[in-house]
């Protein structure tokens, strides 16, 4: 089992001009995530959710504190932490199969092997015939499936999901939630999901982390068990309709609101 840990991580942006104050985005976040866990991070805009993910991915360095992977500090991006982006970030000059095979190509895997592996992964994400299609020919949901297949090709220990379903229409989105959950279980990796949707966090996560805004602080870290119901075959609609789900949903809304300063709510 692997552990990805944030240890007292703070992020400060320098002042924009001489009179401005430095902006504290994340304030001493400590959080640990293991493989086999699905942690959803929710919070209002300005709570530093995406910054947290960028730091975990190694795209951004924290101003203070460290992120460690099994005790060793991370130094920039690495293949053990694969990222799925909100706007897919697929390469339009490559067909779907070559996009999926891209991490393998970087690693020097031979043409035939990476082709075969990419086809397997496309089948896993439910796109067995999309290999030769251009990215521009795929719908938003299909693109995110390709993006997830690409992330899996890197065989990561952690999947960092930066609102991957945020740009999808609601029907596609709910279908993709179940799909994402299934793929995550199969992969055996840990997942860190940034989302705006409390509903999505409750359905997918085994743990929900609430960040308060301005600066981003850890407001709550609570376990959730609805993902297990969905994995055991209960339809998402039934899970949503259960009193326990509603109670938890209302509780989280309350948490997010009380965690926000008054002026924030007025605005």
């Amino acid at each position: 089992m692997s552990h990805l840990s944030f240890n007292d991580v703070s992020l400060t942006y320098p002042a924009r001009d001489r009179n401005g104050a430095a902006q504290l985005v994340l304030d001493r976040i400590s959080l640990s995530l293991s493989t086999g866990e699905f942690v959803a991070v929710i919070g209002r805009s300005g709570s530093g959710k995406t910054s947290l993910l960028n730091i975990a991915a190694g795209f951004q360095e924290p101003s203070e504190g460290t992120v460690t992977l099994d005790g060793a500090p991370i130094d920039g991006p690495g293949t053990e932490r694969a990222v799925v982006f909100q706007d897919d970030a697929l390469y339009p000059w490559l067909v779907a199969r070559d996009n999926v095979a891209f991490p393998l190509k970087l690693r020097g895997v031979g043409e035939r092997d990476r082709r075969a592996r990419a086809e397997e992964l496309l089948e896993l994400v439910g796109l067995p015939t999309a290999g030769n299609r251009r990215i521009s020919e795929l719908s938003g949901g299909m693109r995110q499936r390709v993006g997830i297949a690409r992330a899996l090709a890197a065989e990561p220990r952690f999947l960092l999901l930066d609102e991957p379903l945020g740009a999808l229409d609601s029907l596609t989105r709910s279908r993709m939630q179940t799909f994402l959950l299934n793929v995550w279980t199969k992969s055996g990796s840990g997942a860190l999901l940034i989302t705006h949707s409390i509903d999505e966090a409750l359905l997918l996560a085994t743990r929900i982390v609430v960040l308060s805004p301005h600066p981003g602080r850890l407001a709550a870290d609570i376990p959730s068990s609805f993902a297990a119901d969905i994995l055991s075959g209960t339809p998402a609609g039934d899970v949503r309709a259960s009193p326990a789900f509603k109670r938890m949903h209302d509780g989280l809304i309350g948490l997010i609101h009380t965690a926000s300063p008054e002026e924030e709510l007025a605005a």
Binding site: E120, E123, S139, P156
Partner: peptide, 16 residues
């Protein structure tokens, strides 16, 4: 991560 090369099932997908 332990995704095996043998994949018994894939998730049925209706094209969008």
């Amino acid at each position: 991560m332990t995704l095996t090369t043998h994949l018994p099932q894939s998730y049925g997908y209706v094209p969008d």
